[in-house]
């Protein structure tokens, strides 16, 4: 009997954890999108107001607590500083790909952010201003979508994990 109770509670615990993991992904996605929005406005002011050079800007942006973003900006900066044969667009895309496992963004955001690199460093201030307006707009949309998804599914996955675990435990016992 004791063994049964122990097994049942283990099942419930694990499926509960699984549920909350899945649920967490939704809020982490929202968080990452917001962090990217912040990083992009920092990038914008470095470019438009301070006219700093991109390799220096990325070095600066790499000092952040979020591991995924830090890795991403560090990687871009490193590629540019090494004067390798990467163009900005290539360095950006390759670095985003490398840091993807550390980011909680969906394919849609991945593509939006990836495409942004094509405009970076190759136009004048006005051109950059437009690109920044555009990406912020797109990220705002994504943030809204991600937030809606979070509201809809976060609770559901959390309860599903717990209830699923309970159901499984009852069935097995």
């Amino acid at each position: 009997m004791i063994l049964n109770i122990l097994a049942a509670s283990t099942i419930v615990m694990f499926s509960g954890i699984l549920g909350s993991r899945l649920a967490n992904r939704y809020s982490l996605r929202v968080l990452d999108i917001r962090l990217f929005q912040g990083a992009f406005s920092e990038l914008e002011s470095e470019i438009i107001y301070f006219q700093s050079f991109l390799p220096d800007v990325f070095e600066k942006l790499a000092h952040r607590r979020h591991e995924g973003l830090a890795r991403f900006f560090y990687a871009v900066g490193e590629k540019l500083n090494n004067k390798s044969e990467y163009s900005v667009a290539e360095a950006w895309e390759a670095s985003l790909f490398e840091s993807k496992p550390f980011l909680n963004i969906d394919q849609e955001e991945y593509e939006i952010i990836g495409q942004f690199g094509r405009h970076l460093g190759v136009s004048d201030k006005e051109g950059h201003r437009r690109c920044f307006d555009m990406i912020q707009q797109k990220l705002r949309n994504q943030e809204r979508k991600a937030d809606e998804a979070r509201i809809r599914y976060e609770k559901m996955y959390r309860s599903l994990g717990l209830l699923g675990g309970l159901a499984l435990a009852l069935l097995l016992l």
Binding site: F53, L54, P55, S123
Partner: peptide
């Protein structure tokens, strides 16, 4: 030429306007 321009401007055309 496009790589030369990038290196020349340190990847930042806006900074050498």
């Amino acid at each position: 030429t496009s790589m030369l321009l990038q290196l020349l401007s340190n990847y930042s055309i806006y900074a050498v306007e």
